[in-house]
Design a protein around this nucleic acid. Structure first.
Lengths: 339, 339
DNA sequence: CGGTGGGATGATAACGTTGTCAAGCAAACG
DNA sequence: CGTTTGCTTGACAACGTTATCATCCCACCG
């Protein structure tokens, strides 16, 4: 192993180039007013030492005090929705030379606070958060200190902040109307934890679509609080065992959809009972029957959230903006089965 | 909008608590030697001001000079393999209070260097990289300056660094032998860009399995350089049009597998021609026939890479370690079709 | 009762950089 | 020829924190 060498500093570069410290600083930051010949000498020294400025030290002294760093709180960096959103944020950030800290909070409010606390300590310029908690007043001081804050996928609670969300209610209505239009009258609903605002909105959409069609909501056909495929599959099993079982399902979330499809296959009813899921699923078109979904657009959400964040960082101080991103129904087969 | 307030510093806390700066520092870092009564006063002031230490300033002066930050270079944060690896790294990092910068380089060597350059500027303690480039000598100085470095999924080139990779060759052999065992003699190979070392290794495994079964490799049945589903699908179309078409395919990568399945379905041959893919695909069990795969374990790779990184950060200076993570064949149907 | 030792406390330097400002110098001007 | 102007250059302070070390106070010892 080679010996450990101290990292070169601006002072080392200055000494090697035979110039003052500040001249090196000027060259590194491409400030004007350095004779080309001197600048060249400095650049040669930088190359020779493989010098790289310490961004943390630079930010410390700099006036605007921007770290060129943002934090991103996701439900789970490894789930398809989160990671697509992450990628969109990364791309928008890259265009500005901004680096992204990402973290997962698994629907845990405590973990959300921890993560944001860590971001705070690192003095990120802004935070995009898919919130797990339901009270964001704790972020008030941080915003006042200048950290930009945008909520994605779900709105803020008790805090007046920008948000970018999917049209959850509208998408749910669209799905249920699609099923009603095919003649279904008994439609089961599987949803995520009711504490999650999007799950609530999708349930509302389901209820509204039924009611505006003059149908009553049958509590036996509504199951919330399902956060994994197995729970969803069991819920479907239960409903299929009812005296008057549903002829169609609307699954209000990714994992519910997967669990639902599995349960229907297991029961051999996948060609007899209709199903539409909220949020697209990879390879949904390869399954038989292919899965009809209401697709969200995590990329658009991420891009819009990042752009809003950067607008705030650039000084926009207008009132909070709430953007709603449209969703689209993709009919692939499973949602077009007649009762 | 409320007016913008300066962020409180240790000096503000000290003034409010009526103590010296260093005493606050001691309390914040839980150093011993502060009278409990004084410490309580300081903590009260911290709460009142909602003070949070500036980690960047702290690291600047601190001796060990650790930022509690690592960088992660992935192919694409939004692809399932990368994001599963990411999550495993995040979890290992969280246990140590370390935050993760993640970035995508899309197989672009230039982008890899840019990303690592940005990490370098932020003085990350270590870097985990799924490399896109093929010459890592440029990282030599950085390692000498104390930055830990671990390669994941693919090994380093021209640099003696730790790595954690899948058993690519072994997995490919396993898949091809599985097909040979079912009686297949003409097995097509679809692979990723030959510049990627894992793609090479998988091709080698394919070749070795055939040769050790006494079969010659038919160049018409080998197609590399496929990096998206469409290209893979076209390659399958081509091979199926041969006078003596293959009776089975081994697809050496995720996207090739998806393209392959699509092509076989389009040709109506999905129940007649066998297919095994390298790397698992979400919902592979829902497709008909379900897709047999050689599954990698991105979580184990990520966890192992992170642990190795932290071992280095803790001072382990032993020679470079190369870990090979086993893969497993998951027979689901598509790989068990007889010729 | 003076001296000594140990624990608590804070003044000050230092980390690597940028902001401020004064000095140096050559060209241009009166 | 002296003064002004404008440009280049570097000395020094400052950012928010931690490291070092001196000081203070009190208990204890001889």
């Amino acid at each position: 192993m080679s010996e450990r060498k101290r990292r070169p500093t601006m002072l080392d570069v200055a000494a090697l180039a035979g110039v003052g410290l500040k001249t090196v600083s000027r060259v590194v930051n491409s400030e004007p007013g350095v004779r080309p010949e001197l600048a060249a000498r400095v650049r040669a020294a930088i190359d020779q030492l493989n010098y790289r400025r310490d961004a943390n030290a630079a930010t410390l002294r700099r006036l605007g005090r921007k770290t060129q760093t943002i934090g991103l709180v996701l439900e789970d960096v490894s789930n398809p929705f989160s990671s697509a959103l992450h990628r969109a944020v990364e791309d928008a950030a890259r265009e500005r030379g901004v680096l992204v800290f990402a973290g997962s909070c698994d629907e845990d409010a405590e973990r959300e606070r921890e993560l944001i606390g860590s971001f705070r300590e690192r003095r990120v310029d802004g935070i995009i958060v898919v919130p797990a908690s339901h009270d964001h007043t704790y972020l008030h001081d941080e915003r006042r200190a200048g950290t930009a804050l945008v909520f994605a996928d779900r709105r803020a609670s008790h805090l007046d902040a920008d948000s970018v969300v999917s049209d959850n209610r509208g998408g749910a209505k669209m799905a249920v109307r699609h099923l009603l239009g095919r003649g279904h009258r008994r439609i089961g609903f599987l949803g995520d934890l009711p504490s999650i605002s999007t799950a609530q909105e999708r349930l509302h959409g389901y209820v509204q679509a039924l009611e505006s069609a003059g149908l009553a909501v049958d509590d036996d056909l509504v199951r919330a609080g399902l956060h994994d495929p197995d729970a969803a599959a069991r819920a479907i099993d239960d409903m299929l065992a009812l005296p008057e079982p549903p002829t169609a399902f609307f699954t209000g979330q990714n994992l519910c959809t997967i669990g639902g499809v599995r349960a229907l296959r297991r029961a051999g009813r996948e060609r007899a009972i209709a199903l539409i899921g909220f949020d697209d699923v990879p390879l949904a078109d390869m399954v038989d029957p292919a899965i009809s979904v209401v697709a969200q657009d995590p990329q658009v959400i991420g891009r819009a959230a990042a752009e809003q964040l950067f607008r705030r960082l650039d000084g926009d101080a207008s009132p909070a903006v709430h953007r709603v991103i449209p969703v689209s129904l993709i009919p692939r087969g499973s949602g077009e089965i007649a009762p």
